[in-house]
Nucleic acid binder design. Sequence first.
DNA 1: TTTAGCACTCTCACCTTGAGAGTGCTAAAT
DNA 2: ATTTAGCACTCTCAAGGTGAGAGTGCTAAA
Lengths: 343, 343
Amino acid sequence: MELNERMKTILTAVLHRYITTAEPVSSSIIAKKYKLNLSTATIRHEMNLLEKHDYLWQPHTSSGRIPTDKGYRLYVDNLMKKSHLKENEKKRIIQIYQKSKEFEETMRTTSQLLSKLTNNIGVVLGPHILNNSIKHIQFISVGNNRILVVIITNTGLVCQKLINISGEITKNTLNYLSNFINSKLIEKDIDLINLNNILRDELDKILSFQESFNYIHNFIEECFNLRDFSDKVYLDGRINIITQPEFKETNKLNYILSFIEEENALANTIRKYLGFKQTKIIIGRENKQKEIQNCSLVARKYTIKGKPAGAIGILGPTRMDYPRMISIVEYISDKLSDILSEF
Amino acid sequence: MELNERMKTILTAVLHRYITTAEPVSSSIIAKKYKLNLSTATIRHEMNLLEKHDYLWQPHTSSGRIPTDKGYRLYVDNLMKKSHLKENEKKRIIQIYQKSKEFEETMRTTSQLLSKLTNNIGVVLGPHILNNSIKHIQFISVGNNRILVVIITNTGLVCQKLINISGEITKNTLNYLSNFINSKLIEKDIDLINLNNILRDELDKILSFQESFNYIHNFIEECFNLRDFSDKVYLDGRINIITQPEFKETNKLNYILSFIEEENALANTIRKYLGFKQTKIIIGRENKQKEIQNCSLVARKYTIKGKPAGAIGILGPTRMDYPRMISIVEYISDKLSDILSEF
DNA sequence: TTTAGCACTCTCACCTTGAGAGTGCTAAAT
DNA sequence: ATTTAGCACTCTCAAGGTGAGAGTGCTAAA
């Protein structure tokens, strides 16, 4: 059913009030603070209807109202006005970014910025190696038939993995291999899958006469096994959750924080939104994970040279200032995209 | 003043009881559970003396006793019996370690093991590049006069830093440089300072005729600037703190967690104990940081091939099972030393 | 359609109260 | 000289009662 204008106004007022105070909103507060020129009785009447339609609820019969997830959803989709960061806030962000010169530092700065600006948990999903082009590969023998593979991408992302080989590969062969591969990479924009395809054809030909061919073949196969490459997660602001009034009871807190502690859990949630063009907002019970069904998530992808690379997000109580959260997430993801594209 | 045997026995009993229950210990509980063949009145008398000497205190006049920091200190130094892990616990730890093949993973596993076994916060200070010998150096130009330096050590530690250079250094020069440096490293056990000394002499001679000598010289200087190399910190088990009864009040929790959130704070605390041979135990107010004066820290260095490399530790409420905590920290630091020495 | 008025509901802070846990002191027992 | 039984005393804590206050829904009048 469609709400009339007055109901929308009242719902919006309740939302704004509740977001700032975290306390049930009464009809008289609305009448007083939001000059709607309506009596408390009328407002009560409308609130009653809003409750019947599941946009509001009451903790007990004689208390004020609190928005439901459905209420927040309507607000986010239809009622709220988009907000924009102030110019000096934007400047601050740029200034802070300028201090971090290096890839890792930039990612850490991003999660810190997110958590500090929003007073919520900030999370950044590092770019996956797949979304980068490869700049350099180095093989280093570390004894016991183990080889450390270090791959460096154009953005300065350094990935490493250790490979156990069944036989022996000499240092000369390793050098030969890395030289050969690096020669393919010079001045070219080749990603990991591309590279693998190129190598699969060429290397086999070159190496087929080698004695240790099988070892080398297996080694290279494992080297490009995508499963082992995980994107890094940067998380900040866990404390922010603790100070929120809705999580005063330690058992609720516990529940959320055990979800957060497992960094990958949040990362996996956010990873889904890498393909979305727009900012994604997931409210309360819309979250599939039970642990964060009292929370909302605002997530957005970032890009490197136009290509989706990773995602950032914030996690906080459903009672959050959505317009501001969205504007922060969007501004930061844009800036991060710019910075990473320049690297 | 020296306590007599009976007082020591009673103090130990109070400590054991309080450590398991987290509640003030009464004279009758001691009489009942720890068959000392003394009446409650006698125990009360002794407890009273112990309180006068600041080993115990009471939250209020008619409550049981709680150990003071001084009480814990006496316990740790003189009263407690050293404990040892059970054989199957040791086996479990070794099994878990066997799953992690790679340097980073090993460090993460260590902090997880610490936190899970102790039910406290586990922290691991990664080995500093200084304490490793260098295996390979790679320079990669990432545009805008920036060069990414990747240094790989014998343990598989991968360090990176980004250097801004004022002029231009061609890719050929970079290749030449890294080849030259790597040639010095082959089959040798050279650490960063060593390497720097060797290079300072030799490189200048070789390069003196080069046009871009100054740029290169500055670049190499910056490259070996130790300030920029920080050791990594691995932290786990933040939630464990929340479930401790002593931190029910969220403001206390807040205080501790804000200290933990700043990973470097705990890292810096632990770093001090790198030079100590023995396990270091810091109890409550012995900690210089106010935020963790309700906590105790058990820390110990680990070694790589006999040389001190980094440190591990656990942080929990002063009310912890010290013998067990110590045995866990010691066993894990030994195992970690073994594993890293084998890499 | 709106609203003043009112009865009603629920919470919350505050108080009282009594049981229970635990102590320190003292005088008697060992 | 030590130990302990006995007892008065202190403090906490949970339970129950109370009244103020906040807020509601309903109704009848504007």
